[in-house]
Design a protein around this nucleic acid. Structure first.
Lengths: 212, 212
DNA sequence: TGAAATTTACGTGGTAACACGTATTTCATA
DNA sequence: TATGAAATACGTGTTACCACGTAAATTTCA
């Protein structure tokens, strides 16, 4: 069932990277059928060629790797999608799981891992870089504090991250601004934030991505 | 004086990119003498081989492309340094000018321009991507407010973005915290920031990249 | 239903940030 | 050397944020 040389297409908007990846795959004897320089080209290649594997950059003009994965999910295409990215974002990892994406590799480690990834994915087994898993692990521990927060506290923390003042939050949630202050105080205690005036705002800004 | 095939070394911490660039230069018949995967390797290559041109990524482990340029400026090496980067930052452009850097290319356009750049630089003429110049122009308009700030005001703005309080800034700069408050107030006026309590901190955080 | 957690709210007091004004010193430069 | 810009510093008052405590209403769930 599994071919020894799976058909592959690739796409990346950085020509240098595209060339590097392309050359590498050809040297390694993979069956590279095409390459695109943006999301639209990538999508067309996938629908026309229907390759076994599509290796896509996440950030591309016209269509992101994630959007392509989303569109393909609706169609009856069983191309396995592998994403390459510069960014080590936890959110992307989670989204990737939902969109039946088969792999997720950091560009920094691509050369070492891409070959391994393709082999694994060809056998139908998802591949996620260990380096990414490490990062996820680290982040998860970091989130333990966050999960001690109650729903209301989280809601308020989000609003703080959106530059709202206590009074604005209060009127938005139809509660007293004193209540908001109390929540704030509790949040600070739970998160072990240093007791400086704007430390909570700073914290919220820095961890803004985890609050979505 | 100018060789027809200038000696070149390259360095980038992304193996895929390094491969792409390396393959490209070899295919085009350039005299590629070596490549490194971080700042330290790049620096050693430059001091040992003393190539005509060094093409360096800006962000690398151990030493950035800019730091390498800085070090080389002190030595009697006339290697011409060309930086490649993902980021379109105006400040880098300005710094590049100071450090007698000969070229500055965006990775997105590298393939189209790298050849042209090498030829130009070989003749001793600096090369900066037109695309970058366009961006600089755009950014400049955006920075007009920022440039109305005095040096001291900029310095303080940077420290604000680093979560410093007025008192911390004061003791760090050996001035009264009242002076810092005054600067703060002036900055807010100049930048037309809305008069809310933490608006300056928020502004500084959001424009943090332009303050480097 | 009853205990525990959560949400709601206030009192009191302290610090930081900001507005607006005034005033001195420093420094480049015309 | 004179003029203006910049940096320095203070006075005074307001608002926002934070700590710490108390306490009632509400929700959750065993």
């Amino acid at each position: 069932m599994t071919k020894t040389t799976p058909s592959i297409i690739i796409a990346d908007d950085h020509p240098l990277l595209l060339k590097g990846l392309s050359d590498f795959l050809i040297e390694k004897g993979f069956n590279l059928l095409g390459s695109g320089k943006d999301g639209r080209e990538a999508y067309n290649l996938i629908t026309q060629i229907k390759p076994d594997i599509a290796i896509l950059d996440i950030q591309m003009p016209f269509m992101s790797g994630l959007e392509i994965a989303q569109k393909c999910k609706g169609l009856d295409i069983d191309t396995k999608i592998v994403l390459i990215t510069l960014h080590k974002e936890k959110e992307l990892y989670q989204k990737a799981q939902e969109l039946n994406i088969f792999g997720y590799i950091l560009k920094e480690f691509a050369l070492e891992e891409i070959e391994n990834c393709i082999k694994t994915v060809t056998e139908g087994v998802p591949f996620f870089s260990d380096k990414i898993k490490e990062l996820i692990g680290v982040v998860l521990i970091d989130d333990s504090d966050l999960n001690t927060l109650t729903p209301s506290e989280k809601k308020i923390l989000k609003l703080i991250a959106q530059d709202k003042t206590n009074k604005e939050i209060a009127s938005q949630l139809f509660i007293s601004y004193r209540t908001v202050e109390k929540h704030r105080s509790n949040i600070i205690t739970k998160l072990n934030i240093e007791p400086k005036t704007n430390s909570l705002l700073i914290w919220a800004k820095e961890h803004h991505n985890k609050l979505l």
